[in-house]
């Protein structure tokens, strides 16, 4: 265990633990867009930048992304130094110019006092901030169906060759964890459409409610050794089934005792 100072408070943490997780544990609000606990940090959004210094640095300080900076003994961290706030403001200013339609970015910018961008707005811009949460989660779950394509201005998240990805099972983890809700999908009539690929949902054999796609259920039952019939009923019908079975036993016990 080592000791670091965050905003004047001495905090105990593990050696080499990333600064952001220590900051979050101390319940200090540092904005992030590209951070997700399930996957490795990437430092893409730059919003978690903090000021770090040490007594032996003679007053010099460094500005680092806290999600990628390991804690070292004696480190002095300032999460809301004036320069850090300026830095976040200019980053949000740029985000606002590039992605003017995103509600999340608008809110975050307003929190930091950026109500309108000072730069030229990209008119036909989309909401994708290239945080790569979607691709990292897809990789981590073992599908790797989507990735970033192209470079520079043309960089975007897409399936290979812009065709329906063969590896996608339609788990929707990418769309549900997108910080700016850029990834679109359509559901309805027991079908799901995402990344130009259509899926059939598993309908509950009792009430017809759908939870996951057939491909995802098949993947889980094959890879994780779960019987496929577990997926054939929805959670509510499963609970009713359990209560009916337990009810029979309880009724029998009640009759025996009375």
């Amino acid at each position: 265990m080592i000791h670091i100072t965050i905003n004047g408070k001495v905090v105990e943490c593990k050696d080499g633990e990333m600064l952001l997780s220590v900051i979050r544990r101390e319940r200090i609000d540092v904005p992030t867009l590209c951070h997700h606990e399930a996957v490795e940090p990437s430092g893409a959004c730059r919003l978690c930048t903090v000021e770090v210094t040490k007594p032996e640095w003679d007053g010099w300080c460094d500005y680092v992304t806290s999600c990628l900076y390991p804690a070292k003994d004696g480190l002095i961290v300032n999460t809301h130094a004036p320069k850090v706030n300026e830095l976040r403001k200019s980053i949000l200013d740029m985000y606002l110019a590039r992605h003017p339609k995103s509600l999340k970015i608008k809110q975050l910018a307003a929190d930091y006092g950026v109500l309108a961008t000072s730069l030229e707005t990209v008119v036909d811009g989309n909401n994708c901030i290239l945080c790569t949460i979607c691709t990292r989660i897809c990789d981590h779950m073992g599908f790797s169906a989507i990735s970033t394509v192209g470079r520079g201005h043309g960089k975007e998240v897409a399936p290979p060759l812009d065709m329906a990805p063969a590896d996608c099972v339609g788990c929707l983890a990418c769309a549900k964890n997108c910080p700016t809700d850029y990834i679109e999908y359509e559901t309805g009539n027991g079908r799901l459409k995402i990344w130009n690929k259509e899926f059939e949902m598993v309908a509950c054999t009792v009430c017809g409610k759908t939870t996951v796609t057939k491909e995802f259920a098949e993947h889980l039952s094959q890879q994780r050794d779960i019987p496929f019939e577990y997926f054939e009923k929805c959670d509510e019908c499963h609970r009713k089934e359990l209560s009916a079975t337990m009810g029979k036993i309880a009724n029998w016990e009640r009759e025996v005792r009375s």
Binding site: H36, E37, A38, I137, M141, C171, L172, A173, K176, N177, V202, T211, V212, F216, A217, L220, I226, Y230, F231, K233, C234, D235, E236, C237, H238, R239, E241, L242
Partner: peptide, 23 residues
Amino acid sequence: LNQEVCVNCMACVAACPFGCAIL
């Protein structure tokens, strides 16, 4: 269930044979 790590893929909701993981 660690909510920070969860990616809301609904795998557990669908897999639980007693329907006790709920959205």
